[in-house]
Structures are given as structure tokens and as C-alpha cells.
Nucleic acid binder design. Structure first.
Lengths: 290, 290
DNA sequence: GCAAATATGAAGAAAAAGTTTCAGAAATGA
DNA sequence: TCATTTCTGAAACTTTTTCTTCATATTTGC
């Protein structure tokens, strides 16, 4: 090989473009639990990646080895190096970059946010909230602010597939009265509000509360004033080395909730998804599945 | 074997008394560079210990394995444990909930996605991409798909503050020609495209490429077909225990990029942010800072 | 020191792993 | 859409590994 790559991982990466679909699948499987996943027989490796043995044989040749045994020998050497050098344990996330690189610093902070936020998460709040959101007898309204609107949109997009009666309250202030007309007692209003708490969002929360709706709030560790009106509050740590706050933790929680609600509404959701499938097919919106 | 030893090393030790001369020699050789030294073929292992292959075969049976392959499988498992343990796997994130609770399962998967994606991240791609996006001589266009539109919107929201000439290409297909008119040579087009790759997005990418724009692509591990047109591609792992894919990793990377671009454009950005401050004050958009 | 018991490795048999071929499947391009 | 190219895995084939046999070497007990 002309590359001067020193590890199999690097070889896999630098040749990724030249790999075929099955080979990429294999490549990913190998990286999955690198480098141990490549230590079994060629048959085992193939099975783990759900490809055939010839694919394995072909790929290792493609990335520069004479054959599978040579490839495996290289892996063994790496394992040896990793094991005998205890300091080289992954402390960095992007190991191509130094510890101080922003990618690693930022990720470090985000992981810390996640650890912190989940450590504080009240499971009962989580369960109860999911239950409310899965209850199709209640209409569901979703509201975001200036920055959190993307989050609200993302949540809406998924909930819309999972269940009926979901509304994204989008525009700022003007159109709200119309939405508010529709909010009935015991409906559920999900609000995203993080610091630089917005007046208008607070106003909407107040009106929703007056209408007798259940409010579920996603906010930061400093708690939006809406928390006084909310039935369930998720407070998340959002601090990162940036002029901005991070939404990663919020998104993690939102996705987890989506997964949980989906479990709860599965019979209904299943039908909806199948119908959606058919419609996508008919509109040729997507490419053929790859 | 009657022993309840859990590692090969323990088996070797507890059976040491019953071993013959050649077998002890082999045992020492194995412990020498444990457990990697036992990972080669039976012939290699035998040669390293200066004994014959039958000796190896006999000994592994003596200490309780059915044959050499089984012995080696046990070793591999130990290697795997040694390598993957220090990265603190199977950590409970929400400690109020059991390990199997969806919150923990989901988070585990997301962290794994992050680790995996960043491990593969090419730093040069990262730097070059940030440089392109920070270059105000180039107009910046941002495009998302059905699901990724929220992501695109989030990115747009921030970039809009950081620099001038940022456009979010929102609607599907109809309004594109107008946007495309504005895309000039060397402009930057950021595209989000994950599986269920969308035909329309691909078309747009093609047209942008024809116009001579630089394409930066955020996609999943299976690579959107746009990757062939893209100058820089970020492939992220997005698999979670859900019917949906996760956008958390993408968001992490997007936020990191925002932070980095901000550093690069700080002088210009600072002014913009201050002006924005003033405008917010005047519109009383936010509550007083709490 | 010598017979009996045990251990050892060369050589070949059996089994498994690795490689190559090739026909059908999938993707691509016109 | 259809022809062409490329990819993929079943199956045949080759190589290597693993296991077994057995003759020779070594140790042990007396």
C-alpha cells in the first residue's frame, strides 16, 4: 500500500471511499469493537458483519494486506500495543486531535452535561410525562422559543408520526390566540424555554395554565419562570465552552421520550407509519431504500 | 474442569502442579505476554515456547478446554474485556432507574455513537470545513431534509448571528431555483442528509456542485450519495434503540463547529452580537436577564 | 542400573480456515 | 426503460491449522 497508515483503523478510513456497500458494512463492524472484533476467524468476522467470507477476504486485500492472516497479524500487534501501554487508554474522543482541541473540549463538556442532567433526572417525572404525551385523548401542543424552536420542531416532527392531534405553535405571538382557542382542559402543552427566557413564552404558558392544560417544561438548570406553572419540569445542564448554550442534552432527552412514547402507542403508531410509508412511495419523495 | 477459575491465567496457575516439563515451559511463555501471546496459531504459540504443537494441544485440554480454538476464544474474550473496560462501559446514567431502563439504554447508545463518530472524525476535514464556513467572502447556504430540517434550522439560527450572507434553503423543491440562482462559484453549501436519503436533496446538491459551490455534507455511517459530490463529508453514527435515528451526534458536531467558527470570526461576530443585543432590548423580546 | 511408566515431537490424518471462481443480484448510466 | 457494469455470496477449491498416532526419549521407582 502506498499509504503510510500505521494502524488498520487508519487504513480502513483512508480507503473508505473505495469500498463497496458490503465492504463498508464490514468496515463499520470492525470499527465497532476495534480491534478485538477482527480477532476471530474470517468466518466469524464475516458473520458479525453479516457479509460473506469472500467480502472479508476481498476487503483486506483491497486495503493493502496480502490476505486475512496478514491482516489479523497486524491487528494482533495493535492489540498488544494497546494492552501493554496502559496510558494509551482512550481519554480523548477524537483521537486524531490533541486533548485541548475544541472537539475534545466541547465533547467533554457535553458528556458532563449529560451525566449531570441524567443524574438529576426524576424517573417518575419521565414516566408520567411520557404517559401524558402518549395519551391520545389529550391534544398535544408544542412550543419553542427563538433558539429552541428547532428543538420544538424536531420533537413535533416525530410526535406527528406517532400520534394524532399534535400541533406545533410556531409563530411569535400574533397567531397564538387562535391556537389558544383550541387548548382544552387536560390537554398537554410541551414548552421549551432556556435562558434568555422569553416573555412571550411565559405569557403563553400562563394562558395555557388558565385553560387547564398540563404543562411539561424543558428548561435549563436555572429554571425558567414557567416551572412554577408546569406539572412536570425537566431541568438540563447546557453549559459548553462557547458563547452559546448546548442543546445536545435536551435532544438526547427528547429522543428518549420519543422512543418511550412510541413503545406506549405502538399499535396506533404502527398503522400511521405504514400509511406514511405508502404515501412516501407514491410521492417518490425518497430514493429507493439502500 | 472442576475449578471455578474465570481466567485462563488462573487455570494455568491452579493446574501448574499437574503440568509436565514442556507444558510448564509453555505455560510460562503464555504468561510472559499475557494474554496476547496466546492469540496466534497453535504453531506460533508452540514455537514461541519452543515446544511442539501436540504439547500445546494436550495442555489446553488438560486445563479444561475442549481444544485449542476454544482456549483461544476464551483468551479473546479476556482481551476484549481488558480493552473495553477502562472506557467505563455499562455505566448507569440515570441512577434512579435500573440499567435496563430506556433512559439508560438510550443514553448508552448515544454515548457509543459519539465515541464512535468522533473516533473516526478526520480533524483536517473539521478544520477545513470550519475555515470555509468562517470565510465571509463566500455566501453560506444551509439545506436539510424532512427530518434533518430541524438540524439545518438550528445551525442556520446560529450561523446567522455569527456572520453575514447565510441562507437557509427551506422549502421543498419549488422555491429552489430562486436560491440556486444565488449560488456562485466557491460559495459554501452545507447539506444534512441521513438515511432515507432524499432525491430532492441530491438534485439540489448536484445543481450546487455544477454551480461550482463547495459542498459540506453531514450524513450517517452509510453515506448519502451526495458524498461523491461533497468536498468535506462528516459521517456520523446515529443508531439508537428506537424506530428512529438519533440526531444527537450530529448536533454535537454542529455545535462544536459553531463554537469553532465563532472563534474564527470573533471580531466581526462580536459587533453583530452587540447590535443584536440592542435590538432585543428595544423589542422587549426577552425578559430582563435573570 | 534397569524395567516400567510417562512425556515428547515428527509425521500424517482430519478438520477448519482462507481463497478463488462464477452466476445471479444490484446499481449505474444511457 | 433496458443494457452494461459492478457487486455479492454460494460453492468449489486450496491452504493452513489442529488433532491424533506412534516411535523415541526421558523420567521414575525399585
Amino acid at each position: 500500500m502506498s499509504e503510510n497508515a500505521s494502524t488498520v483503523a487508519e487504513l480502513l478510513q483512508s480507503n473508505f471511499d473505495n469500498l463497496t456497500r458490503a465492504e463498508r458494512q464490514l468496515s463499520h463492524s470492525l470499527m465497532e469493537n476495534y480491534p478485538v472484533s477482527g480477532l476471530g476467524s474470517i468466518t466469524t468476522v464475516a458473520q458479525n458483519a453479516s457479509v460473506s467470507t469472500p467480502t472479508v477476504a476481498r476487503m483486506v486485500q483491497k486495503i493493502g494486506f496480502k490476505g486475512f492472516p496478514e491482516f489479523q497479524a497486524a491487528l494482533r500487534k495493535e492489540v498488544e500495543a494497546t494492552i501493554s501501554d496502559p496510558i494509551a487508554k482512550h481519554e480523548t474522543w477524537a483521537d486524531q486531535a490533541p486533548n485541548e482541541h475544541i472537539v475534545n473540549k466541547f465533547t467533554e463538556a457535553v458528556i458532563d452535561n449529560i451525566r449531570h442532567s441524567l443524574g438529576q433526572l426524576d424517573i417518575d417525572t419521565f414516566e408520567k410525562s411520557c404517559e401524558l404525551m402518549a395519551d391520545t385523548n389529550r391534544s398535544l401542543f408544542i412550543v419553542g422559543g427563538r433558539i429552541t424552536r428547532a428543538m420544538a420542531d424536531y420533537f413535533f416532527l416525530h410526535m406527528q408520526v406517532l400520534r394524532k392531534d399534535v400541533t406545533h405553535i410556531q409563530s411569535i405571538s400574533n397567531a397564538w390566540p387562535h391556537y389558544l382557542l383550541d387548548i382544552k382542559k387536560d390537554d398537554v402543552v410541551v414548552i421549551f424555554d432556556v435562558r434568555r427566557y422569553e416573555n412571550s413564552t411565559l405569557k403563553l404558558a400562563e394562558m395555557a395554565a388558565e385553560a387547564g392544560a398540563k404543562i411539561i417544561l424543558f428548561t435549563d438548570q436555572w429554571l425558567s419562570p414557567i416551572s412554577k406553572l408546569a406539572h412536570h419540569t425537566f431541568s438540563l445542564k447546557i453549559v459548553v465552552p462557547s458563547a452559546w448554550d448546548s442543546s445536545v442534552t435536551t435532544m438526547l432527552l427528547v429522543e428518549t421520550i420519543i422512543a418511550d412514547v412510541q413503545k406506549r402507542t405502538w399499535p396506533e403508531t404502527r398503522e400511521r407509519m405504514e400509511e406514511l410509508e405508502v404515501m412516501f412511495d407514491r410521492t417518490r419523495f425518497f430514493r429507493k431504500f439502500t
